[in-house]
Design a protein around this nucleic acid. Sequence first.
DNA 1: CGTGTGTTCAAAGCTCGACT
DNA 2: AGTCGAGCTTTGAACACACG
Length: 231
Amino acid sequence: MDDIRQGRICRALRLRARLTQKQLGRACGISQQAVSLVERGHGSRLSGLTMRRLFAALDARWEPTVSWRGGELDRLLDERHARLGGTFADLLRRRGWRVDVEVTYAKYAERGSIDILAWWPAGRIALVVEIKSELVSVEATIRKLDEKVRLSIESIAETRFGERPRSVARLLVLPASTTDRRRVARAHAILGAALPVRSDAVRAWLRSPAGAIRGLLFVADTNRRGLWRGG
DNA sequence: CGTGTGTTCAAAGCTCGACT
DNA sequence: AGTCGAGCTTTGAACACACG
């Protein structure tokens, strides 16, 4: 949809709701100036989040659509996540872990897939790894990881590795980007409590695991030097 | 050399306030 | 309702440095 049409729709919906630009801006947490920009056909100058909030306040849904070479778009979107997962799965294998990737589950109302489910036979330790190519919602990420760990204890690990795990560890893997490090630092209170083990301690545990840790690890994207730093 | 951490810088996105 | 400039915050990228 073009900016002009978007602006006309915004204005029509706002007037229908009998709101001024200022009132609408207040309702969705943006400025009157931003509302004005959209209505004058300059919506592309605002972020997607702002546009979504604006139209949500008008009881409408804002949905940008992107098309690119048919089915290749999904592959492109998945690329960074897959690469990060692949790098970490290789690391686990080198350390002697048995590794399964994309383990799907469906139990009761809970369904989804575990990015990496690893198994350490000597200690009967299962490791649930969540790969995030970008940390968006800390709470949702931790909640989902909890669910996967619980289901792994109950059934998934046993089905996969033939034994009931003695303990289930959890690990959140993020790209070693400045932005993700900042997000982790900002969410220190929540992440510190949920996933207290970091960096060197996590790597040491991966070499000789004992018990169930709750950890967070930054992993460099080795295939994107230049765009991502090596560290 | 690989990894972890902190700092700096420029650009983008946005708000605020004055003004028309 | 709309314009404009100042200023703030966030982000990605590039470095520097320490450590094993």
